[in-house]
Design a protein around this nucleic acid. Structure first.
Lengths: 146, 146
DNA sequence: TACGCAAGTGCAAATAAGTCTCATTTAGAT
DNA sequence: ATCTAAATGAGACTTATTTGCACTTGCGTA
């Protein structure tokens, strides 16, 4: 509810030439406040739970605009729906470990891997724009349980 | 049309405890013969074009069984449909460079990258099963054109 | 502070990819 | 040649996402 946070998000939106609507602000605030990787439906339900009136269509459309402007990132874990994470400031790219049992997502960054990616691109005269590296498997918690 | 190829594919299927149906043989033969990364609909249309009678449901079901047995690999390039490639013999895992302009897919293998992945998994006490590494960007041909 | 209008929203209908049901067919063991 | 579990075809269904269109709202301007 912080007015300061609202104000800041309004500015972020305007800097990117998007109208600062209550729906978009609520959406950004939600993503800012979580470490989870929500899908569109979850975002929709969370916003509703918080008494924000918003429609599914708006959630999808907002996420699209925000992703285009790199304010959020689309994540595809291969299970048929897109997930979204807020692009915290201008921090470094990270990749994901995804637990196939509990769905937990662990973020990681590996400099050497990034370097290898660039070298692969050079070898193939390929100009990279983005990349995704997902490792699927079993997390430590789930190993204990099983 | 080679009877020898048919025979070989029949055996492959049987070794994996799948009935060697004409549909599955045609599907495998198609994937064997191409370097493209077809999606289910494309596979369906290609088979129809070749006068093979097969239904969409069978394409999906066959691809599922074949993927489970590692005879084909599912590829998710994040555009909302799964693509498939034949798992040539028992060769090494490879990753993909995907041209965002022409859709071309270049396969690569990088030993150092695979090693880094394992080390990331260890650091996080994570047991990997599979991974995907996709680099999106512009291929050399498309760079020339633009 | 009120006005205008393009940008944004809500709703419901439309798509798109993939899955499921069930009656019919077929591979392959006997 | 016969039998039966496995596989298939047709189409209905599901789930995620997109779109058309009438209505609303930010926000620049008077």
């Amino acid at each position: 509810m912080s007015a300061a946070e609202n104000q800041q998000l309004k500015e972020v939106l305007r800097e990117h030439e998007l109208k600062a609507t209550t729906q978009r602000i609520a959406l950004l605030k939600l993503l800012d406040a979580t470490n989870e990787h929500f899908d569109a439906e979850e975002i929709y339900l969370e916003l509703r739970k918080k008494q924000k009136n918003v429609s599914r269509a708006t959630v999808y459309r907002s996420l699209e605009s925000l992703a285009e402007l790199d304010l959020v990132t689309r994540l595809d874990f291969g299970d048929g729906r897109m997930r979204f994470e807020r692009n915290k400031d201008e921090d470094e790219h990270h990749d994901h470990l995804i637990c196939e049992e509990c769905g937990k997502v662990i973020e990681f960054f590996n400099l050497e891997m990034e370097a290898q990616q660039l070298s692969v691109c050079e070898e193939n005269d390929f100009t990279p724009s983005t990349h995704t590296m997902h490792i699927f498997g079993t997390c430590s918690d789930c190993k204990k349980t099983s």
